[in-house]
């Protein structure tokens, strides 16, 4: 075991898989010599050479398109999109090609590309360095969508993604690259070394794609969340002294709905939380799926916590970000009379 932050854990995942499998290649803007603007690919080019760690031209569409071609010819490309906010020029290649190649060729061709993209706000990045576009991609059939919330999962899920035979969009909540964040920007930053999930095996291991995890067991209400919001929800539940069961979705698509529904059936109450915009956000799918299965068990309407239905405003970052107060309002609404 080693202490790793999320950046180191992701780096280690690529390192481990590149060492085992010569077909794994890394590409993206500034990822090579420089090691990436968040340093996630630091040192990989020095170790594996310039033919396996490529500095790409600034062309997200080109990056994904060539990654597809490489995958068709036997490579395992791990492509970085510098910020999730810059993935849109690649959306045609993702939606029309990457996601459907297996289906349209009846399995004759596949393109198991991994696209890594730092996402989410809380770093004063303004509207073009803060977005959480996961729901745009969960709506596309044929790509898997993953978002880890800690170093241990980040490494295990990225290795699993690289070894998966389907294309995967791997979102990395950059606010928690260096430590868990409970939504309070005025508190000093906490490093991952203080958190059990900062203990990461140095070698190869996988965290299964398509599996959620109960990160905090509880009986009063089920909180379904992922990414940075895991920690915000934990803090809010603690402050309200509510015995919440917190489930980290980890893979948004395909969705591991059964453990979520079991939990909701047990607690009878549910709050869903994500950083992305509320309207047609991934929470809408969660809410609908949970309601379909758990309607007769619900004691109160399912509550959603999300970013507002606006772009991410630079100066109002903390008013936009779904912090503990927004989670607390939803928890109270879900608890209804129980709380009072």
């Amino acid at each position: 075991m080693a202490q790793m932050n999320m950046i180191q854990a992701l780096n280690s995942a690529m390192d481990v898989t590149m060492a085992r499998d010569p077909s794994v290649v890394v590409m993206g803007e500034d990822v090579g010599y420089f090691g990436g603007v968040f340093r996630v690919t630091d040192g990989l080019q020095r170790k594996y050479g310039e033919h396996r760690v490529l500095d790409s031209p600034i062309s997200e569409g080109g990056i994904v398109a060539t990654a597809i071609g490489m995958a068709v010819n036997g490579l395992k490309p791990v492509a970085e999109i510098q910020f999730a906010d810059y993935i849109y020029p690649a959306v045609d290649q993702i939606a029309s090609e990457l996601a459907r190649l297996r289906y349209r060729s009846a399995g004759d061709f596949t393109s198991p590309v991994v696209i890594r993209a730092p996402c989410g706000g809380g770093i004063r990045g303004g509207q073009t360095h803060s977005q959480s576009p996961e729901a745009i991609f969960t709506h596309i059939c044929g790509v898997k969508v993953v978002m880890p919330s800690n170093p241990y999962d980040a490494k295990g899920l990225l290795i699993a993604a690289i070894e998966d035979e389907d294309p995967i969009i791997f979102f990395e909540p950059k606010r928690i690259y260096n430590g868990p964040f409970d939504g309070d920007p005025n508190k000093p930053a906490v490093p991952w070394s203080t958190h059990p999930k900062g203990d990461v095996p140095e070698g190869h291991y996988k965290v299964p794609i398509g599996k959620s995890e109960i990160v905090r067991p509880g009986g009063a209400v089920t909180i379904v969340t992922y990414g940075t919001m895991v920690y915000v929800c934990e803090a809010a539940a603690r402050k309200l002294n509510i015995d919440a069961e917190i489930i980290d979705v980890r893979t948004m698509s395909p969705l591991d709905i059964d453990p979520i529904c079991s939990s909701v059936k047990k607690t009878g109450r549910c709050v869903i939380a994500h950083e992305a915009t509320r309207f047609c956000g991934f929470g809408a799918e969660l809410s609908a799926s949970i309601q379909e299965e758990c309607f007769w068990y619900l004691e109160a309407p399912i509550q959603r916590v999300a970013g507002w239905d606006t772009p991410y405003p630079h100066a109002f970052e903390w008013e936009y970000f779904p912090g503990q107060a927004r989670v607390a309002l939803a928890l109270r609404a879900a608890m209804g009379d129980e709380q009072q």
């Binding site: 309070d184 005025n186 402050k239 903390w318 008013e319 912090g323 503990q324 107060a325 607390a328 309002l329």
Partner: peptide, 14 residues
């Protein structure tokens, strides 16, 4: 409403 709640949660309001 959220901003009012901040104080109760011991958080600095924006």
């Amino acid at each position: 409403e959220e901003i009012k709640l901040n104080a109760e949660l011991g958080l600095a309001a924006p």
